[in-house]
Design a protein around this nucleic acid. Structure first.
Length: 109
DNA sequence: GCCCTGACCTGGG
DNA sequence: TCCCAGGCCAGGG
C-alpha cells in the first residue's frame, strides 16, 4: 500500500505512538488531526487492533477524560494503573486534572 | 451482501 | 461531565 493509501488505522497508530510520557489525548483529537473529525468512532475501533502494535492505547481516552476503553485491557483496572504509573491521577475511571495532562497532536507538529 | 455492533463527538433541549 | 438523536465507517455473523 502506498503512503497516500495508508489505512486510517495506521495513521491512528502513528499519532498514538507520539503521545509523550505522562500525557493523554482523546479519540476525537486524533480523528480531527487526521481530517476525519466525524469518524472518532473509527479511532476507538482502530485501537481495538493496536494490542500487538506497541501503541500506548491507555493514553487515549474520550473527551471527558473517562477511561471508556478500560474493559479492553486485561483485568479490570490495568489501564488505570498504567496511567497512574505515569503520574496521572485516575479516580473511578476519571482522569483528574484532565486539562493539564491533555496532549494535542497539533501542538506536537 | 444485509444487519448489527461499537475504546466517540457534536448540537439542541 | 445531563438527556436524546444523528452521523461516521469497518468487521463479523
Amino acid at each position: 500500500m502506498k503512503p497516500e493509501t495508508v489505512s486510517f488505522y495506521d495513521k491512528v497508530y502513528q499519532v498514538a505512538r507520539q503521545i509523550p510520557f505522562g500525557r493523554v489525548t482523546s479519540y476525537g483529537a486524533i480523528a480531527t488531526f487526521l481530517g476525519a473529525a466525524k469518524s472518532a468512532r473509527m479511532v476507538g475501533y482502530a485501537m481495538n487492533g493496536s494490542h500487538n502494535k506497541d501503541v500506548p492505547a491507555h493514553r487515549v481516552v474520550n473527551r471527558k477524560g473517562l477511561l471508556t476503553g478500560k474493559h479492553h485491557f486485561d483485568g479490570t483496572n490495568l489501564m488505570q494503573q498504567l496511567l497512574e504509573s505515569e503520574g496521572i491521577q485516575v479516580i473511578d475511571n476519571q482522569i483528574q486534572d484532565f486539562d493539564s495532562v491533555f496532549w494535542e497532536p497539533r501542538k506536537a507538529l
